[in-house]
Design a protein around this nucleic acid. Sequence first.
RNA 1: GGAGGGGUGGCCGAGCGGUCAAUGGCACCAGACUGUAAAUCUGGCGGGUUCGCCCUACGAAGGUUCAAAUCCUUCCCCCUCCA
Length: 416
Amino acid sequence: MATFKSELVNTLSQRGYSHQCTDLDSLDAKAATSVITGYVGYDATADSLHIGNLVSIMMLRRMQQTGHRPIALMGGGTTKIGDPSGKDETRSLLDNAAINANIAEIQKTFDRFLGFGNGKTDAILMNNADWLDKLEYIPFLRDVGRHFTINRMLTMDSVKLRLEREQPLTFLEFNYMILQGYDFVELFRRHGCTLQMGGSDQWGNIVQGVDLGRRLSNADLFGFTTPLITTSSGAKMGKTAAGAIWLNPKRLAPYDYYQFWRNTEDADVGRFMKLFTDMPLDEIARYEALQGAEINEGKKKLALETTALLHGMDNATAAAETARKTFEEGTAGGELPTMSLNAAELAAGISVLDVLVKLSMAESKGEARRLIRGGGAKLNDVKIEDENALIRTADVASGSAKLSAGKKRHGLVKLA
RNA sequence: GGAGGGGUGGCCGAGCGGUCAAUGGCACCAGACUGUAAAUCUGGCGGGUUCGCCCUACGAAGGUUCAAAUCCUUCCCCCUCCA
């Protein structure tokens, strides 16, 4: 079964992380005999990472699990410039305080997946502001810039595509890959980091870093990318009306995170288990053998495992229990979004439109109205016919009133 | 600096004086069918609404007109070619 010498490369390959590598055999040989230090870079533009970052976070976790040392590199320095790629409008640039606050929040997510410390295989959190902030333009150009030829940079996919499509490409962005390449060298110098990983869209930037390392430090560096993770029907992961699937519980409750995984397409269950959980491969194989409606068991397992990794087993089981009550019993579980009202407010009655908006089940009153007109809104499992309906004391007689938008999104109104 | 072309809703992309809150596609939401799946079909998809309408919106600001995303002026930004 094992086609590689090292546990690291075997794991990455068997679990579906492998897309491209600069020199897989050498990496494999090295990983078999020594501790490899590898990193992934992350943007610090928001106070939370999202589902799109999860593959690479799991890769760092796999490194640690197989006896190597992961580095999570926060782009505190590069964030100050703002990556202009794919953006129409100039992003509002963040100041140091905002960036550092973001990094502090994001670190909590990493704490879930990685063990930090000073040991040989303990994870390290770095911030590229530590070196990028201090760069001096002329010395940097002379020492680093001389190793990049425009000819070569123009052949990079990210550049070429933009130019072919006649899309603007700023000098700032052109420099972005140089800074990213320089990060790699800096991590090599400071921590002996010899591996950079990332999504397939990062391939070009990663290769530049590998080259730069060889030229500047005669270092033997490796680049490794993962495939772009899409659903089987080809959609990018994590797109819903509610927005991105955030990893920070302040932005997305564990219950909603659980539901995201619970709603995985049939064809993706096994693949996602390999990528996003620690389940052993033989156990995953058993779930993959399930057919038809039985696949739902696999989805529950997937949702439980992924949620437990990020939010802890307690939160995961609570989410699972709420989902079970809500969908299998048709009652309502405690983890649903809840709104509390006092007796007087309930006696007067509160508009379902307002409640739908407050519980984030509709973006606006207009949307809530359309939901009701379309027959998608229910109060205690009874279709709401009147868009101006009120929720009153009688509706919470059982302790709480359950408000539903479609079959999947539910919320509770309680007497405070 | 000169000559052309362009900036439209989350994205792509039509419209080029009224019938335009703006065709179409993607994405998204709901309904039907189901297994909290996919596919398919149907409806919806700026905000408010006393459902009469009222606001806001086609890069920005002015102007012409009964009427402007559409015409004019100035400004900002992008692309191509020339210098």
